[in-house]
Design a binder for these strands. Structure first.
Length: 589
RNA sequence: GGGGCCGUGGUGUAGCGGUUAACAUUCCUGACUGUCGAUCAGGAGAUCGCGAGUUCGAAUCUCGUCGGCCCCGCCA
């Protein structure tokens, strides 16, 4: 070993010990005679003192030439720092190393940015020199905590009898879902593998195989546009179990998340933080299928109150079967100009209009107040639990009205800083519809994926009223972000074929694309279900980070580029030829 | 595919029609034996992302382009 101790472990109980340290020069303070070097590795920082009296002139010359981030090895004795010169800000601050020898293991040129200082370096520079960026304390902490979370998840699932099984990265392309990344086959020219969007079919087949509890920290690859919380490759804690009901998976995942949080934040979850609401309730009350419950406001239905008012627009809407929905935001003040901006935004979102009432105790200010009796005004305030602030109203189809108010709910919370950043708010959203109509494709598509089981009592509606069929699906939502999604799967080949045909996929097509899977289901597939957690998102949220790039060692930019390696890159003509490919676009210069 | 913000010494910023392009830090040289973001003195380092246009004159205004970020679409 080139070292006997790390830079973070020495303390007063090591006094007098001869040690060898190795690490990076974090800083050098040259006093002409005596020279201090802060030596850093991922465990900490130790001050090494080079005194010309106890060092050969040759060695001292080398110390004088040190620069930031040079890699050195220092030999010396652990000594007590002179009284008054202790540094309480570092763990090793009571001791220092009186150096007797130094070896320079490697040099470092002047840096594009400082390693010590946190913050303000543009992200593109950070990514170009990711090895230096990762050397900084913030990224070291993020990746180490990510590792601890992964260990905690593995240990917990293993304790619960789950078996970690790897599934292929080279698999076949299937329709439905995200765009696939494709890999050309050399052995069968003209054919392609696809990289998996998730190990969905593999893990279901493992259930058929009798591995009744499977998990994997799985890479998932999707060729779609990037966002702060989306990378072309991300990691899921993917799990699946046989003979389970939704509640079994949910209880397991709650404990899993608890363990992960314990590992990352060193404090357990409050189990009361896992309410369950149905998709219908979520849309109605929050205008979203992933509501952020850190925000107090809830959307109310006030149609009945307006039904008896003389406010013609809402009364008429109510008579036509539309709903009047309201959103109250307490403790805010909005000028008429600001309100106008929201009204315009409502129109952009397709609302017929946006009404508002400013509330201040028993005082109501609004252009529509004169149409509403004082009794109804106070009922509105009471139903919306508001004493001071603003109530917004939208009259429309129920879902549309709620969705628009839901967008305002998020925007106002952000604008007025109504979200407490520290809190972690988990919930389950259940009973998603199985299917939705896609305007783009002019057919029904799955809300989750085509393998989600319909609720048994709704199966009979698959032909007659497919949009009414609910799935046995459940999403785990954290602070307004979907961090996990799962379901009970279809285990009957017949029902699976039925769902494919409801999706409008011709039998010939699904037999060709999913025939292997339908066949597997026939051979004694057990009832099964599972879930996948977006691991990057979970860690980023637990750490209070805006972007998952902060918890990924080598992320891509928004254009999908790696600034470190310059991937993606052109390939040699020879490689194309070997694969039987020819570019249909001009060669980039 | 669309909308928005940003691009000025190595790094982070200021300047927003005429400046010797400013400040901090890094870097280089020198001084200094108890510092710890060492200090002090001196110095170097920028054709203002790139291209075109407007103008007597462009870092500054306009258009295009490249790159980064945020968002919509997309992400079962």
């Amino acid at each position: 070993m080139l070292r006997t101790v790390t830079c973070g472990e020495l303390a007063l109980n090591n006094l007098g010990k001869e040690v060898i340290l190795a690490g990076w020069v974090a800083s050098r303070r040259d006093h002409g005679g005596i020279i201090f070097v802060d030596l850093r590795d991922r465990y900490g920082v130790t001050q090494v003192v080079f005194n010309p009296e106890s060092l050969s002139p040759d060695c001292f010359q080398q110390v004088s030439s040190l620069h930031s981030e040079d890699v050195i090895q220092a030999k010396g004795k652990v000594v007590h720092r002179p009284s008054g010169t202790e540094n309480s800000r570092i763990a090793t601050g009571e001791i220092e190393i009186a150096a007797s020898e130094i070896a320079i293991l490697n040099r470092c040129p002047s840096l594009p940015f400082e390693i010590i200082e946190e913050g303000s370096v543009s992200e593109s520079v950070r990514l170009s020199y990711r090895y230096l960026d990762l050397r900084r304390p913030g990224m070291q902490r993020n990746l180490i905590l990510r590792h601890k979370a992964a260990v905690a998840a593995r240990n917990f699932l293993s304790e619960q009898g789950f078996v970690e099984i790897e599934t292929p990265l080279l698999t076949r392309s299937t329709p439905e879902g995200a765009r696939d990344f494709l890999v050309p086959s050399r052995l069968e020219l003209g054919k392609f593998y696809a990289l998996p969007q998730s190990p969905q079919l593999s893990k279901q087949i493992l259930m058929v195989a009798g591995f009744d509890r499977y998990f994997q920290l799985a890479r998932c690859l999707r060729d779609e546009d990037l966002r702060a919380d989306r990378q072309p490759e991300h990691t899921q804690i993917d799990l699946e179990a046989s003979f389970v009901e939704p509640e079994d998976i949910q209880a397991l995942v709650e404990e899993l998340v608890n363990r992960v949080q314990q590992a990352v934040l060193d404090k357990p979850l409050d189990r009361k933080l896992f309410p369950r609401i149905t998709y219908q309730e979520a849309i109605a009350a929050y205008g979203s299928d992933k509501p952020d419950l850190r925000i107090d406001s809830k959307i109310e239905d006030v149609t009945d109150l307006f039904a008896g008012s003389s406010f013609e627009i809402f009364r008429k809407a109510a008579a036509e079967g539309k709903r009047v929905r309201s959103l109250a935001v307490s403790q805010i003040e909005l000028s008429n100009t600001q309100l106008k901006v929201y009204q315009e935004k409502a129109l952009e979102l397709g609302a017929k209009g946006l009404a508002w009432i400013k509330v201040n105790g028993a005082e109501f200010t609004s252009p529509i107040a004169k149409f509403i009796s004082p009794e109804i005004l106070s009922c509105l305030a009471e139903q919306n639990h508001i004493k001071q602030g603003v109530i917004f109203f939208v009259a429309d189809e129920p879902v549309k009205a709620s969705v628009i108010l839901g967008i305002f709910r998020l925007q106002l919370a952000k604008e007025f800083n109504l979200i407490s950043e520290k809190s972690l708010n988990f919930l389950w959203v259940t009973d998603f519809p199985l299917l939705k109509y896609s305007e783009e494709e002019k057919r029904l598509v799955s809300v989750h994926h085509p393998f989600t089981a319909p609720r048994p009592e709704d199966i009979s509606f698959l032909d007659s009223e497919p949009l009414k069929v609910r799935g046995l699906a459940y999403d785990l939502v954290l602070n307004g972000t979907e961090i996990g999604g799962g379901s009970i799967r279809i285990h009957s080949s017949e029902l699976q074929k039925k769902v494919f045909s409801v999706l409008g996929i011709p039998e010939q097509d699904f037999q060709e694309q999913f025939g292997f899977f339908l066949k597997a289901l026939e051979y004694g597939a057990p009832p099964h279900g599972g879930l996948a957690i977006g691991f990057d998102r979970l860690i980023a949220t637990l750490l209070g980070l805006e972007s998952i790039r902060e918890v990924i060692a080598f992320p891509k930019t928004q254009k999908g580029a790696c600034l470190l390696t310059n991937a993606p890159a052109e390939i040699a003509d020879k490689q194309l030829k070997e694969l039987g490919l020819r570019l249909a676009i001009p060669k980039p210069t």
